[in-house]
């Protein structure tokens, strides 16, 4: 049989060029965060100066602190509400369920800019002072949807007979939830939680519209630095942010791995 070697070879080369395209900018960014030269993209020597400077910058530390506060609080609220929603949606029937279902997906799909401006207008309308609280509320709003979607997927993959079996064995509905349902959807909840935190941690646009004086988040700080011009400090803070996200992804993948292990049982 005649093989189409040239086509195969070309596909392979193409694929690795695409991966180069995807990873090269990130690698360059990280490498140049250790470069002594400030203005030109020319390698002049290794330094940790830019990192040191970051941690001497009170505004930067403040922004990191704000981002952590917003991320942690909004993730906690969104995880609880999103999980409850997912369970409620998978278990109950109620009028307007389809409408609620669509509304639940909308924050995921509508352009961020629209969500940002609508929240800004809303806060101004109800005369809510912009600050950390207004960002947290905004982040909870989109994260409820993301958590609900992730947990629902997990619930959908669960054997519906397990809960029945628990009831049959004498577990009360509460015990069934506590000892069967909750442990089984836990990987989904953790994955949703990590996703929510990542989204909050990375969000610039919505925070941009809903932040007030003194509530600048890390992405907002980075944005203002970028607007000011390229500088190695941005490379340094970018590297830290990348590292942080990578750790979160790693944890998420580990959780997913556990999920797969329990899924193979049926």
């Amino acid at each position: 049989m005649k093989k189409i070697e040239p086509a195969r070879w070309m596909l392979g080369t193409h694929a690795w060029l695409v991966y180069l395209f995807i990873y090269a900018p990130i690698v360059v960014l990280v490498v140049f965060s250790f470069n002594q030269e400030r203005i030109n993209a020319v390698w002049t020597g290794f330094t940790l100066d830019w990192y040191v400077r970051l941690f001497q910058d009170a505004g930067m530390l403040r922004a990191i602190y704000n981002s952590l506060i917003v991320g942690l609080i909004s993730t906690a609220i969104a995880t609880v509400l999103g999980t409850m929603t997912a369970i409620g949606m998978s278990r109950y029937r109620f009028p307007l369920k389809r409408v609620f279902d669509s509304v639940l997906y909308l924050p995921i799909i509508i352009p961020e800019i629209v969500m940002g401006v609508s929240l800004l207008v809303f806060y101004v309308f109800i005369q809510f002072t912009l600050g950390t609280a207004s960002i947290i509320i905004a982040h909870v709003t989109f994260n409820i949807s993301f958590v609900a979607v992730v947990v629902r997927a997990r619930l959908a993959g669960m054997d519906p007979w397990l809960e029945q079996a628990a009831l049959d064995l004498g577990a009360t509905p509460f015990q069934t939830f506590r000892y069967i349902t909750l442990p089984l959807i836990k990987p989904g909840i953790i994955a949703g939680m990590l996703l929510a935190f990542t989204l909050s941690w990375d969000d610039f646009l919505i925070a941009f519209f809903t932040a007030g004086v003194g509530s600048t988040t890390l992405p907002m700080k980075v944005y203002s630095m970028i607007k000011f011009g390229v500088s190695p400090e941005i490379n340094a803070i970018s590297t830290i942010t990348l590292l942080f996200t990578m750790i979160l992804i790693f944890i998420a993948l580990r959780v997913e791995g556990v999920t797969h292990a329990t899924k193979t049982m049926d």
Binding site: I22, P25, L29, I39, V230, S238, L242, M246
Partner: peptide, 23 residues
């Protein structure tokens, strides 16, 4: 995986590469 990393940072990376004195 890169999709999960900060959007702003990835966009900045291109700014870093493409600018006049860029890489």
């Amino acid at each position: 995986i890169p999709f999960w990393t900060n959007f702003l940072v990835r966009t900045y990376a291109w700014m870093f590469i493409l600018r006049t004195e860029g890489l």
